[in-house]
Every structure is written in structure tokens, then in C-alpha cells.
Amino acid sequence: MLALDFVSTLRAGRGGLTDSLADPDALTAWARSRAELDLDPGFTATSEQWRQVVDLRLAVRALFARAVAPGPPSSADAARLPPFGQALDTVNAAALAVPTAPQLVWDDDAATLVRVPVGPSTATLSARLAQAALEFLAGPEVAELRACPAPRCVLYFVKEHPRQEWCSTGCGNRARAARHYRAHRGE
């Protein structure tokens, strides 16, 4: 899911937070590796695009935090999240930045109508990421969206089965080890 991949570009590691979108070059590499973005193969992020995408990620994370409420949001940036209304406006504006137009694609004997962006290419990446976030947040999977409660984890995940509590088995192991340590620390 593109929306989850996007917000997961901010991760916790042993040395603290790591950002897969740390600079325009990192954004370029990340965006080129996502076929679903359907970007020009020569896409290279500018400093302005990078700032827009990082701001958009913070706004999407604010919407994810609202979606998991009353549970706690991810601890990565909870203190820096914009207010809900501002985050919603940011994501909606980014999604609208690139209008689309219908185009007819004719393969063999069948015609298919597709929508293609007709706006400036500098806004295409942010628009596609915002649209993916809006589709996810309005879709059925949002009911299973969770913030991972494991120590130091900052990820959101979609709960795939009723007993799933963490985003990964590694986080589950860390949470159980921390719980065991706390229980036996006083002996």
C-alpha cells in the first residue's frame, strides 16, 4: 500500500529515527523505486519538491494519528503533527494540485478510459502520494489501521488478523522482552 509505504519512510532504528526521505536525492531514489507512482524514469526531486513531500508526510501522519484514535499516535512525530484541520487541508490541496483528464487507450479491440495528469510535473509526486493517502483513509482497511505500540517503534500498520498487536515479529519480540524485563527488574 503506497500510503503506508509513504508514512513508513520515517522509521526507528537502533541509533534513533531514520528518514528514507532525508534529502532530495533520497526522495528521488525512493520515488523511482515505486512503480505505482508511474513517474518519468528520469525523475529527479528538487529541493522544493522534497520539502513539499516531507510536509505532506507529516500531514498524512497526522491523519493516520486521527484514524487510530482513541489509541495513541506513532511516537515518531506526535509532538510535531499539525492540527487535524490543517493536515486535512494540506493533503486535500496536494491531491488537487494535479488535475487529470480522460484519455482513451485502445488495446486490440477493447477501449479503456484512463485518467492522466495534466498539471505541472513538479506537483505530480505530491498529488499521487496525497491521493493514495486519501484513498486509503476513505477505504475499508482504515478500520484496521494501528500505531505499533512496541518500544521505540514509530510505524503504522494494518492489522491483518485478530491477535496481531505489532507491526512485525521483531517489534513483538522487543515488546515481550521489555515487559519481561520490567516484571523481573525488581527481584
Rank of each mutant, 00 (worst) to 15 (best):
M1H: 10
M1K: 05
D5L: 11
F6S: 01
F6C: 03
V7Q: 04
T9G: 14
T9A: 12
L10H: 01
R11T: 15
R14K: 13
T18F: 06
S20A: 15
S20Q: 14
L21F: 03
D23F: 07
D25F: 12
T28E: 06
A29I: 11
A31L: 08
R32E: 03
L37P: 11
D38M: 11
L39D: 01
D40E: 14
D40K: 10
T44P: 00
T44Q: 13
A45Y: 01
T46L: 10
S47W: 01
Q49S: 05
Q52F: 00
D55W: 00
R57M: 06
L58I: 02
A59L: 09
A59Q: 03
F64D: 00
A65Q: 05
R66E: 12
V68D: 05
P70K: 07
P70H: 02
P70V: 06
G71F: 08
P72T: 14
P73V: 14
S74V: 03
S75V: 14
A76H: 01
A76I: 02
A78L: 11
A78T: 08
R80V: 12
R80Q: 14
P82L: 09
P83G: 13
F84K: 00
G85T: 11
G85D: 15
Q86E: 14
V91L: 08
A93Q: 09
A93K: 08
A94D: 05
L96I: 01
L96W: 04
V98I: 05
A101G: 12
V105F: 06
W106V: 15
W106E: 12
D107Y: 10
D108S: 14
A110C: 13
A110K: 15
L113H: 08
V114G: 07
V114R: 13
R115A: 15
V118F: 06
G119E: 03
P120R: 11
A127D: 02
A127K: 05
L129M: 08
A132H: 05
A133Q: 03
A133M: 05
L134Y: 00
L134N: 03
L137T: 05
L137D: 02
A138K: 10
A150F: 04
P151D: 03
P151Q: 00
V154Q: 01
F157M: 04
K159R: 15
K159M: 04
R163N: 09
R163L: 11
E165V: 15
E165I: 12
E165H: 11
E165M: 11
E165T: 14
T169Q: 10
C171K: 02
C171E: 02
G172N: 05
R174M: 04
A177H: 03
A177E: 00
A177K: 04
Y181G: 01
R182P: 07
R185N: 08
G186L: 13
E187F: 07
E187W: 04
